[in-house]
Every structure is written in structure tokens, then in C-alpha cells.
């Protein structure tokens, strides 16, 4: 499994939460530590299929400079 937004490999993904009903696993929430995308494996394909995403809705964590700073950090040694 890769990140549905940036295709980062499994080693960059974190399991956040498992939804259960009477002991049965019904879904799992994952987080991509590289692009910050969060998703549930039960969601419709438009949200979690990389192939269905327009470029604008994909992420490129190899080039963080592409993304603007909301509030630039006052000191840069602690940034990202």
C-alpha cells in the first residue's frame, strides 16, 4: 500500500486508528508522514485512489518549497 496522495511507500505510513464493531475490524485510518495525508481504507475511490486524483490534489513531498508558508517560522532551525 502506498499513500493515495503522494505514493510514498508503506514505511512512511502510520496506522492511526482501527474502527471496530463487536470485535470486527470495519476500517483503518492511516497517515502519511511525508505529505500529511490522512485517510480511511473504507472511503470511496475518489478520495483514496491516486490514479483518480487530478495533479492539483496530489502532493509532492520531495519539493516542500512548492508549498507556501502560512506563517513563516521566526527561527528556521525547528522548521519541517
Amino acid at each position: 500500500m502506498n499513500c493515495p496522495r503522494c505514493q510514498s511507500a508503506e514505511e512512511h505510513l502510520r496506522t492511526e486508528c482501527e474502527g471496530r464493531e463487536g470485535g470486527e475490524l470495519v476500517w483503518t485510518v492511516f497517515y502519511c508522514r511525508r505529505c500529511s495525508f490522512t485517510w480511511r481504507d473504507s472511503e470511496p475511490a475518489e478520495s483514496i485512489d491516486y490514479g483518480l486524483r487530478e495533479d492539483w490534489f496530489r502532493a509532492d513531498p520531495d519539493h516542500p518549497e512548492k508549498y507556501e508558508q502560512n506563517i513563516p517560522p521566526a527561527k528556521t532551525d525547528g522548521a519541517d
Partner: peptide, 26 residues
């Protein structure tokens, strides 16, 4: 606040009815 730390945030469907982009956010 984790001073000076930023994380990628967005997009989010915002009030004008369109998505805001991805940014580095506190």
C-alpha cells in the same frame, strides 16, 4: 504550539466553495 515547527496542511473545501491549497502550517 511547537514553536517554529510546520506541517503540510490542506487542501480543505472552504467557504467560497473551492479548495484551498497545501501550505506549511503551525
Amino acid at each position: 504550539l511547537l514553536n517554529n515547527q510546520r506541517c503540510l496542511e490542506g487542501p480543505f473545501g472552504e467557504f467560497p466553495g473551492s479548495y484551498s491549497g497545501i501550505r506549511h502550517v503551525p
